[in-house]
Write a protein that binds this DNA or RNA. Structure first.
Length: 367
DNA sequence: AAATAAATAT
DNA sequence: CATATTTATT
């Protein structure tokens, strides 16, 4: 008797929780709806989850007796139900594809990113294209929900820049808002942000205008996209910031940001490793600096390859995963420059001439 | 305190 | 648009 009673009670409780959960899920779904295009699977997942739960509470058959399964353990994460849901659906992908642009040709290489790809892999066909990538509308900071949200969040964040949740180091990503050392969630982050903005008030004084722009965080995903775009445009040296930005179709991304990133990339992107074995050609080493990098003049296609962009991997090597972790750069370039002018070495920097050459009609191939 | 990503200035 | 310099963050 008692037993059944407590069971009953138990069940009711569960039911209530389920309802709450469903509600939360629905709300969630509303939010993701915006991303319909880019996160169709997420949407689907959530939808299915909702349906499932609804079904569950509408037909209270045996589980109440068994007293376990379903929502009960949502707290501990990985509510079995949901997970189960995930599995089957997950692979179903493929359903959507198509879409307008499929900028993503690529990937021959890259993405060794251990952890985070999985999902990424599946839906990577195309992610957002006109979605707000960063500055979350801050209005709604949903954090009421646990796991399920994290799933979606993870995806978004991957793009958005903060790759927490999944693996990943902690690359210097200091977007104004979140996650520093993993503690200041929710409220803290908000106040933090506000404070920051207040402090950001450079310009000294009165106006309050002229606060510095918030830093854009180039997440892996974003960078990946950047790279792809770059590739499409024919290499870092022929691609121009504007083109890149346009091709990337990432909402909110500005020319300047792209420009800056491109600059950094160009800087970094010339790893000395392996590019110039230079052991060959023991004679005088005639070097040409092409696009800022040293290159043995001897080789036939030198300029060709370089200017043509097109997989100048030999030279720009690391178009792949990441650019050389970090090392010296920067200062060296100017030094090199000056040196070459001094020594009288031929320097044919493509960008220089390209700027004049290329105007509307970009034709890098044509030297 | 050095290193570096990003913003801004030329 | 390319580079140089400054600023901000870790």
């Amino acid at each position: 008797m008692i037993n059944s009673l407590s069971n009953m009670k138990n069940y009711n409780e569960k039911r209530v929780r389920c309802c709450e959960y469903i509600k939360a899920l629905e709300e969630e779904r509303r939010k993701i709806n915006v991303f319909q295009r880019e996160l169709p699977l997420c949407l689907e997942l959530v939808t299915q989850a909702i349906e499932t739960y609804k079904k569950e509470i509408s037909e209270p058959t045996m589980e109440n007796l068994c007293g376990q399964s379903e929502c009960s353990e949502q707290t501990t994460g990985e509510c079995g139900g949901i997970l189960d849901l995930f599995r089957p659906i997950k692979h179903s992908s493929t359903s959507l594809e198509g879409e307008e642009e499929e900028v993503d040709v690529d990937d021959e290489h890259e993405s060794n990113e251990t952890g985070l790809d999985c999902d990424d892999k599946n839906m990577k066909s195309e992610w957002l294209k006109s979605v707000q990538l960063w500055n979350q509308p801050d209005s709604v900071l949903s954090k009421k929900l646990e796991r399920s949200q994290q799933e979606t969040e993870t995806v978004v964040e991957a793009i958005n820049g903060n790759d927490n949740g999944t693996t990943s180091h902690q690359p210097p990503c200091y977007e104004t808002s979140n996650v520093k050392s993993g503690d200041d969630k929710s409220q803290a982050s908000i106040s933090g942000r506000q404070k920051m903005e207040a402090e950001k008030d450079i310009s000294g004084g009165s106006g309050g205008i002229g606060r510095r722009k918030h830093r854009r965080c180039w997440s892996h995903e974003l960078h990946r996209r950047f790279l792809n775009t770059l590739k499409q445009l024919g290499g870092p040296h022929v691609a121009t910031p504007k083109q890149i930005r346009e091709l990337m179709k990432v909402d909110g991304l500005t020319n300047d940001e792209v420009k800056s990133h491109l600059q950094k990339y160009r800087l970094h992107t010339r790893r000395p490793g392996q590019t110039i074995p230079n052991k060959r050609d023991s004679q005088t080493q005639h070097f040409v600096v092409v696009g800022g990098i040293w290159v043995p003049q001897a080789s036939h296609s030198t300029a060709n390859a370089a200017t043509a962009g097109e997989t100048t991997i030999g030279i720009y090597g690391p178009l792949q995963s990441e650019w050389p972790s970090q090392s010296n750069f920067g200062r060296t370039i100017s030094e090199e420059r000056s040196r070459c002018s001094n020594k009288g070495i031929i320097r044919c920097s493509s960008p220089a001439m390209s700027s004049s050459t290329r105007t509307k009609t970009k034709d890098p191939k044509l030297s």
